[in-house]
Computed example of a mutant assay.
Amino acid sequence: MASLNVYSALVVLFFTRAAAMATKENDQIIKDNNCETKMGLPCVLEAFTSIFKTGTISSKCCGELVGFGKVCHTTLVKRTLENPLFKDLSPARIIVKSIQTWNICLALIDSPSPSA
């Protein structure tokens, strides 16, 4: 029975350490790419609402999001999911919404604007 407790403790330690390493890796990617300085706060909030809640993102903010870059977008979503405040969210659902938001913005930015 004692070996089961030791095994359980090792499993918990492994997953805790893996989560901490993932957080450090994400933080390093964010730092290396200057992710936290690439979008204005209003568009950050719009993108956040579109992904983590229910909302849409404007074409202006889509432009900022695409300019933000896929690496920064994906990494910040992952880092947000690591935050204990968001532990009740479904990571799979958030990842799907994140990809949808990115694709909508990419299509919006890539499509030619209608001429008047």
Rank of each mutant, 00 (worst) to 15 (best):
I95E: 13
L13I: 07
D27R: 12
I51D: 00
L76V: 11
V71L: 11
P114W: 02
C72F: 06
S113N: 12
Q100M: 08
I99Q: 12
D32T: 05
M1W: 10
I51K: 00
R79E: 09
L106Y: 10
F68H: 11
R93S: 10
G55N: 04
S3G: 05
G55L: 01
P84R: 02
C35N: 05
H73Q: 08
V6L: 12
T75C: 05
T80H: 06
S50K: 03
S3W: 13
K53Q: 13
M21Y: 12
D110P: 04
E36M: 14
C61N: 03
I30F: 04
S113H: 12
K97G: 02
W102N: 03
G63I: 06
N26W: 10
Q28F: 04
A116Q: 15
T101H: 04
R79V: 01
M39Q: 08
I29D: 03
G67I: 08
I95N: 10
V77I: 15
R79K: 13
A9F: 13
S3Q: 13
C43W: 07
I99K: 12
E82H: 08
L41D: 08
F15S: 06
S50Q: 03
T56S: 14
E36Q: 12
A116K: 14
V96M: 09
H73S: 12
P112C: 09
K53V: 04
L45D: 08
L45R: 10
F86W: 02
L65K: 03
C61K: 03
H73F: 15
C72W: 06
S113T: 15
G67C: 05
S113Q: 15
T56H: 11
I94L: 00
K53M: 12
C105R: 01
S8F: 11
A116L: 15
L4R: 15
D88G: 11
Y7H: 11
P112M: 14
A107P: 02
W102Q: 06
S113L: 15
N26M: 12
A22H: 09
V12Q: 12
S58H: 07
L13N: 09
E82M: 11
K38R: 14
F68R: 02
T49I: 09
V77D: 07
P91Q: 07
K31V: 10
T75A: 06
I94N: 00
D88W: 05
C72G: 05
N33C: 05
I57Y: 07
D32K: 04
T74S: 14
F48S: 08
E25Q: 12
G69W: 02
E64I: 06
D27Y: 04
E46M: 02
S111T: 15
D27H: 09
V77A: 03
S90R: 02
I109D: 07
I29T: 13
A9M: 13
V6K: 14
E64Y: 09
P91D: 04
A20Y: 09
L10S: 06
T23W: 05
A107N: 14
G67Q: 07
G69M: 03
C62M: 08
E25Y: 14
E82R: 06
S113F: 09
F52H: 02
V12A: 13
A20I: 11
I51Y: 01
A19W: 10
I51G: 01
